[in-house]
């Protein structure tokens, strides 16, 4: 019981003390954004016209980009009707 309690407290402490501050640290943001942008490029270039058929690969087609948690990047896909954006997030 004591060990379980200790493990639980450890997880909570580690989450609050380390993980959350590093999540907002720019160094991590850059790494995650770099991955998101790289995945986004690959997704758009590989899918090409298939985006018009509603395919989105590892991304998602959204009307508006933003307002949600996580690090992601979106590019507008002109030609989709109504105009959609391809969003790829990381992690």
């Amino acid at each position: 019981m004591k060990w379980m309690l200790a493990a639980l407290i450890s997880i909570i402490v580690v989450s609050y003390v380390l993980v959350i501050p590093t999540r907002v640290h720019l160094g991590w943001q850059v790494r995650w954004k770099a991955r998101a942008c790289s995945d986004l490029k690959r997704t758009v270039n590989e899918l090409g016209y298939r985006i018009l058929l509603g395919q989105s690969g590892q991304g998602e087609l959204v009307s508006t980009c933003g307002g949600e948690k996580g690090i992601y990047y979106c590019v507008l896909i002109p030609g989709t009707s109504p105009s959609k954006k391809m969003r790829v997030g990381s992690p």
């Binding site: 720019l26 942008c37 270039n45 590019v75 896909i77 030609g79 989709t80």
Partner: peptide
């Protein structure tokens, strides 16, 4: 950070111009 974002915009221009043309 901005460099990666700009790269995502720039390196998809060709594909996006063709998607637009196809549409």
């Amino acid at each position: 950070l901005r460099m990666y974002e700009m790269s995502a915009e720039a390196d998809t221009l060709k594909a996006r111009s063709l998607i637009f043309a196809r549409s």
